[in-house]
Design a protein around this nucleic acid. Structure first.
Lengths: 348, 348
DNA sequence: CTGAAAGCGCTTACAG
DNA sequence: CTGAAAGCGCTTACAG
């Protein structure tokens, strides 16, 4: 391993001068130093730099599932911000496990300058340790019950779910089911609340056997949809509270040869890249994804700037959009319905 | 920041003893040390540990596009291996840019113990610098022309493309198009070669205007498909060389109201989670994804073990599988074809 | 089993 | 602008 000392010797200066040159300060023998760096293939030791400076130039990002296209898009947004900065992203997956999240955060707290976190549950207190370790923390997508003092980029989950409910109600559905996410997560709880409240407000309500809780994974969407279909009186419409469960529901409906939307309307939360290409094209509640990543990273970088480090927490809450495609229709609509992509339209 | 020195003082021992305790060696005052660690909330400085030990316990992973479900699945496979080990994964995106890849690798080389790389192009020599820096390197999905001396997990791209060609030929197509990936990447070049060779061997060949090169992104699949459709004599079948371009092609065909497979058969390379749910369900060449990540990580961890560090390079080449769904049919098949998911079958 | 000491590779006030 | 020196927080042979 080439050290700064070897570069200094070769260039005939002191290590201090090489260090200054590398950090952009003007020195007399810059040509000789540059030549030595090139010839030796010198690259500074990150560990030594960060031990000395106390900075890592790295942002930790912890998401519950990197294969979820929503989080992939969010991370892409973050990268678009750090690309032009000196920061790098250290991505970790908590795999929807609080235990793993604890480990990952504890480890990260000592090797990054700041953390962006989509917590596994609202209850987990571990993220607060990050604060004790004085590592700035920004929440994305999901919140923490005790986390109101942190920056956050969230979406109006309850209102999005309300839009979904009113869309189904507007089509005339009265036997409506919901497959919600875990009730100890912000989106799981708030989307269910928003959805049920809208049904109640309309005097429709929901049967207990139609009010199901999944785990945000495809498999649970699949299995809970099967359980709905096995009911003596299945619902005529179902709301799935995230993209992966929507996919699982659609698979179950396909496998059971249920006509969508003829026998069952399906509306999901979060759009998919393939949404318009599916059979049928999915009606969904959409929200900005890449933009959320951009916003979260900007909030964090701002907080890393000593000038703003002690500002009040900023909590950004974004709105959602109903994207009407062909997976929803009035109850009892006749079978084969061919929908063209151009039917899709957005309403606020 | 709590240091090992403060823990030592509180526990009434020397920093050396605390260090030994933390590294699992048996010490006399372990209870007092554990108590001090807990009370102070001590967590070791990663920078100091790694500066001293020369190890980072971190594996760098560089992929060209994290939003591509293939790479997301691959990374998931890698995580399943590291979870039980002491290693963490440092994920970076080269965004299909060699320039960015160079930067990322140079930076990583000093902060990880090993690197798994899906290189942007076959030509880029930068990854070889990693060797100079004596950081073990494993290739995944894509190779390097000068990279034969490294471990690698690849797929038989040419054979997979041959399967695709023979499937279309078997259905009776003779006007066949290919949308290939960049010709300076292994999968781009090899898939095109395998496909064209099979067409040539069958005496069918390909018209120059049907032999198109994309960039593995959805947008190029979309645009090149539009260009095929605007031809005086469009093909009756098209092969798209990766999942995102397949999606783009399908979107273009939808938007132009082209019946698939009635007017145009479509076969892609790499399956999608939504493959069976699309309109129509996609016929694809599939390959192991999660497994590739598992294998690559195992190869790397093995090489990190001094016992095996100097073994001959291992190059794992996996086979592909044709998954027949409903997006391919004999040319000129009548319009609306309804396919049920259960039609899907795999052939080797 | 334990402690004092050296040193990993840098950076940065300090003095010139 | 420059160099000598101290020190960031750990780990580990060394001697006991």
């Amino acid at each position: 391993m080439v050290t700064i000392h070897e570069v200094a010797t070769r260039a005939g200066v002191s290590p201090a001068t090489v260090s200054r040159f590398l950090r952009g300060r003007s020195v007399r023998s810059s040509d000789a130093i540059q030549a030595a760096v090139d010839e030796l293939g010198y690259w500074p030791s990150h560990a030594a730099q960060s031990l000395k400076s106390g900075r890592t130039d790295t942002i930790g990002v912890v998401v519950p599932d990197i294969t979820n296209p929503y989080f992939a898009a969010v991370v892409k947004g973050m990268e678009s911000v750090t690309r032009s900065e000196r920061y790098r992203i250290f991505l970790a997956n908590s795999d929807e496990s609080s235990e793993l999240e604890d480990q990952v955060l504890a480890d990260m707290a000592r090797r990054v300058d700041g953390i962006i976190l989509a917590p596994v549950t609202e209850q987990n207190r571990a993220p607060l340790n990050a604060r004790e370790a004085s590592v700035p923390l920004v929440f994305i997508d999901r919140d923490l019950v005790e986390g109101k003092e942190f920056d956050a980029v969230l979406v109006d989950n309850a209102d999005g779910a309300r839009q979904a409910a009113e869309h189904l109600l507007g089509l005339g559905h009265t036997r409506i089911a919901a497959i919600s996410g875990p009730q100890d997560t912000t989106p799981g709880r708030r989307r269910r609340e928003g959805f049920l409240n809208a049904l109640t407000a309309a005097g429709v309500g929901i049967a207990p056997e139609h009010d199901l809780i999944g785990d945000f994974r495809e498999r649970s969407g699949y299995q809970l949809t099967l359980s709905l279909l096995s009911l003596p009186e299945p619902p005529t419409a179902v709301f799935t509270a995230n993209n992966l469960m929507t996919l699982g529901a659609l698979k179950a409906l396909h496998d059971m040869r249920v006509d969508v939307p003829g026998q069952m309307s399906l509306i999901g939360f979060d759009d998919l890249d393939t949404g318009p290409l599916l059979r049928p094209p999915l009606t969904v509640i959409d929200r900005p994804m890449v933009e959320q990543g951009v916003l979260a990273m900007r909030l964090l970088l701002r907080r890393l700037d000593p000038q703003y480090a002690n500002d009040m927490p900023r909590r950004v809450v974004l709105g959602t959009t109903l994207v009407e495609r062909a997976s929803t229709a009035p109850p009892g609509t006749s079978g084969e319905r061919t929908a063209s992509p151009s039917r899709a339209r957005k309403t606020r």
